[in-house]
Amino acid sequence: MKLRGDIFKQIRRKRGLSQTALAEGICTQATISLMEKQNRIPKMNILTALCSRLDISANEIIENDDVSMTATFDQIGRLLAERQFEDAQTALQMIKVKNLQNEFDKQRYYYLLGMLQVQNHQFDEAIFNFELVLTQFSTASANIYLAMTTIGMAMAYEKIGSQSRALRLVERAMRLIDEKKLTGGQLQWIVVYEYISGLYLALGQPQLSLNAAQRGIEICRQMRSMFLLDRYYLHAGKAQLALANQAVGKQDLEIAHSLALVGQHPELVKESMKALAMA
């Protein structure tokens, strides 16, 4: 995504607002200045509030370009993985589907749309879009989105109570990962194993959940990344407890709790504390 700071400035002036007046109660005046002079895109909640005050759609000041699409999709994927669903939906709505230039962009778009629909309990729509990715927008290269989309379908089926079908889909995703030598970026590899670990846990498969969590933790270590590490240890701790490994499970949950505190993830702090209380 690219911000048109010049257009943003013109609209602000037409509304008769100074930078300070526009920013009041939303952000700092410096944020407005950076938007207008350097085309700096602020956080999605700030951008949405500013557009609301100016009575415009974000699409009027945001445009998509080929160079920035990967960064945009990665940003939305990160927001989804961190469970910041409203921000992810706002960011996805700024993408104009008709302007997507290639099959890979369409594949990523409909995968993200399906993931948001799962969170919004629009399961039929989500499954439709996941199937669209796998049948119509599947690129020639074997990329990680094939596995991630399959996991998305598994999430949808697990939510509607079709556990056997969900389990088959998770197993299919694992085969894709292990046999097809899928290509993907650091973010996608960390995300996909976290989703798999969480799904296996929900499907009553603690050993498989633990295996996936351990894979993810190793990737985080190799890449020196803290992203989703608290969730990985949370899954690992719960899986260990389910396998009657009380001491190791409690240790993993304590690590998850500490990481969640450092990362300022209050929902994970509560969840890890609850799991520790039951350990």
Rank of each mutant, 00 (worst) to 15 (best):
G152F: 02
Y157T: 07
Y200F: 11
Y200W: 06
Q186L: 14
Q117Y: 13
Y157K: 10
T183Y: 10
Q122H: 11
A140T: 06
E131L: 05
L210W: 00
E179F: 12
R175M: 14
F130S: 04
I151D: 06
A140L: 14
E131K: 15
L203Q: 01
E179R: 10
E158T: 09
E171D: 14
A166M: 06
I144M: 13
G198F: 00
G161C: 12
L169I: 03
N143Y: 08
R165E: 13
V170G: 09
F128C: 09
S162V: 04
G185R: 02
Y193Q: 01
A140G: 13
V191K: 03
G204P: 06
Q119E: 15
Q163I: 01
L167S: 10
K181I: 00
L169C: 06
Y110F: 15
K180F: 14
V191C: 04
T150D: 10
N120C: 04
P206S: 13
A126D: 11
F128K: 15
G184K: 02
N143W: 03
Q207A: 12
V133I: 04
L187H: 06
V118H: 08
M155A: 07
T139M: 02
E179D: 14
T150W: 09
W189K: 07
I196P: 00
S138H: 06
G204C: 09
G114I: 05
E158Y: 07
I190F: 00
I144Y: 07
M153K: 15
F123N: 08
V133N: 11
Q136P: 05
D124C: 02
M174D: 10
P206L: 09
R168C: 09
